[in-house]
């Protein structure tokens, strides 16, 4: 059994999601994990992929059409590359979600989205209903497994010795019906709440719109997005579009810091998939402490200025 992983990159750097997909593949018990880099001028990218721990070989498909990640262009190449592999993984990012189903349809195979647990080479788990239920899947062993890997479920592998890089050229006609026009990176000073890796949120404990600036200051210090509980939004401390929770945004940052948020279940459903939750609240019985990985009981008006100072 051999697993092929399609690397995700921006032309210069490999995305960490690739290393997470390698981590998932490492649990399969396969003989080889190969990484394919589809790029234009991708030698440096291939070298980054080659040092990922556990990678056996890197396949480089260097081609002008691969300058931008267009599913219609990449999918036929990947389908051809996947020949002979028992597993084909891509990260469950917008890139993997766009490309892999197209590959799967070309190959006439089903695909697993958001693979979160490897229980065996053909035995997996994935979330459904926005993570409110988990299904266990058994796939037919005689056919290749295609899956996007839920990035939050796997820690990226480290780096080690470089694996060999093989340049491949495929004789495939690629369609011209899909053309890249532009990419506009996230504008603004703060990251987008929905996709930010770090989020600092404020609740009613802030007490006023003015005090809510503390949340913003800490967020800026951490390059984090700003969120708010419904109570803070209802009280007018923060605008509606910052609301995190059941009726606001459902987010999964790596770090979530809750300031003066009691943690009603409606708020907690919005952060249940966050990596690390930090709670700072003066009420030791606040429900937020029942889910927080790190809790600090105390006055946020003393704690946050200290944090700001020490983070300098």
């Amino acid at each position: 059994m051999r697993c092929l992983i399609i690397a995700e990159h921006d032309g210069q750097n490999l995305n960490t999601a690739t290393a997470r997909a390698v981590a998932a593949a490492s649990q399969l018990g396969v003989e080889a994990i190969d990484v394919a880099v589809l790029a234009h001028g991708g030698q440096a990218l291939a070298e980054q992929a080659a040092i990922l721990e556990g990678v056996s070989q890197v396949l480089l498909l260097d081609r002008e059409e691969n300058a931008h990640p267009l599913a219609a262009v990449l999918a036929p190449q990947i389908a051809a590359l996947a020949e002979g592999y028992s597993h084909l993984f891509m990260p469950s990012t917008t890139f993997g979600k766009d490309v892999l189903p197209r590959v799967a349809a070309l190959m006439g195979l089903p695909q697993i989205s958001d693979l979160m647990t490897v229980k065996g080479p053909h035995h997996f788990e994935r979330p459904v209903y926005a993570g409110n239920a988990i299904i266990e899947l058994q796939c037919p062993p005689e056919q290749p497994v295609l899956a996007t890997v839920r990035t939050a479920s796997f820690k990226p592998v480290g780096t080690g010795d470089a694996a060999p890089i093989e340049t491949r050229a495929l004789e495939i006609d690629l369609p011209g019906h899909t053309r890249f026009v532009a990419l506009e990176a996230d504008a603004g000073d703060r990251p987008d709440l929905q996709s930010a890796e770090r989020v600092v949120s404020g609740g009613r404990g802030l007490g006023s719109e003015e005090n809510f600036r503390l949340v913003e200051q800490l967020a800026d210090k951490l390059h984090a997005a700003v969120g708010a509980s419904r109570a803070a939004v209802d009280a007018g401390y923060a605008p509606n579009d910052l609301q995190v929770g059941q009726t606001g945004k459902i987010i999964a940052p790596e770090l979530y810091i809750a300031l003066g948020i009691s943690g009603a279940i409606q708020h907690l459903t919005g952060i249940k998939d966050a990596g690390t939750i930090v709670a700072i609240n003066k009420d030791p019985d606040a429900p937020i402490f029942e889910v927080a990985d790190l809790g600090l009981v105390g006055d946020l008006f003393e704690i946050v200025p200290q944090l700001l100072e020490k983070l300098d």
């Binding site: 979330p127 988990i134 899947l137 402490f289």
Partner: peptide, 19 residues
């Protein structure tokens, strides 16, 4: 061909960390 769903389960609840 498709993968079979063997079982459904609820997600594990988050556990409290430490203070």
């Amino acid at each position: 061909p498709a993968c079979q769903i063997v079982r459904w389960r609820a997600p594990e609840p988050r556990q409290a960390g430490h203070k």
